[in-house]
């Protein structure tokens, strides 16, 4: 990513932790001395309902408070959403789209025309199940974002996660998340 402004749109279902992940990416931006903004699309939140969240990261102070119209990074935490929602709506030229699925980008492309985007996949749910022991695709997704965008390094994400998770969670949970991030970072497919 060479552009100064990165605009991320998250597609998920309520309960998958997209807002938490959007916040994590914002905090990582703080660590880089960058400016940031993270906000959900507002509405009543119900577990399982489709939700959208946004993150802006910029070298310059961010003063625009409108929803993101042309994201250059699109993250899909639940692959079933792509059947009912146009997840690439407004996507900027060569936007990075990462879908949480065990399928390869080629397999996804067979059924869906995403136009001119860089499609990537990562088995974030599978990784989460194997490392954290629960289907929480949000933290591995942050690892995939770091790899796909080059915004953050793997160790940077892990250091941040260790710091912020250690206060709340057991060492086992923390280590599971760190491993999830590492695997997602390494296993994201283009």
């Amino acid at each position: 990513m060479t552009s100064q402004l990165t605009e991320v749109r998250w597609h998920a279902r309520g309960g998958q932790g997209a807002v938490t992940a959007a916040k994590m990416v914002a905090e990582l931006a703080v660590g880089r001395g960058k400016h940031f903004q993270a906000f959900p699309e507002y509405g009543p939140e119900r577990s399982g309902a489709p939700i959208v969240a946004f993150t802006r990261i910029s070298d310059e102070p961010i003063q625009t408070y409108s929803p993101i119209e042309s994201p250059n990074v699109i993250l899909v935490l639940d692959p079933t959403l792509i059947a009912s929602i146009d997840v690439v709506e407004g996507a900027s030229e060569q936007a990075v789209v990462i879908i949480n699925t065990e399928q390869t980008p080629e397999e996804i492309k067979k059924d869906h025309d995403f136009g001119n985007v860089r499609l990537m996949t990562v088995a974030a749910s599978k990784i989460a199940n194997e490392t954290i022991g629960r289907n929480l695709p949000n933290t591995p997704m942050v690892g995939a974002v770091a790899k796909a965008t080059g915004l953050f390094g793997l160790e940077e994400v892990q250091d941040h996660m260790r710091q912020s998770f250690s206060k709340k969670f057991s060492e086992k949970v923390v280590n599971g998340n760190l491993e999830a991030v590492r695997r997602a970072f390494e296993e994201v497919k283009e």
Binding site: K23, F36, Q37, A38, F39, Y42, Y65
Partner: peptide, 12 residues
């Protein structure tokens, strides 16, 4: 301050 746009948004 603005509901949701600021109240629910994470900023610096």
């Amino acid at each position: 301050y603005d509901g949701f746009i600021i109240s629910g948004a994470i900023g610096p």
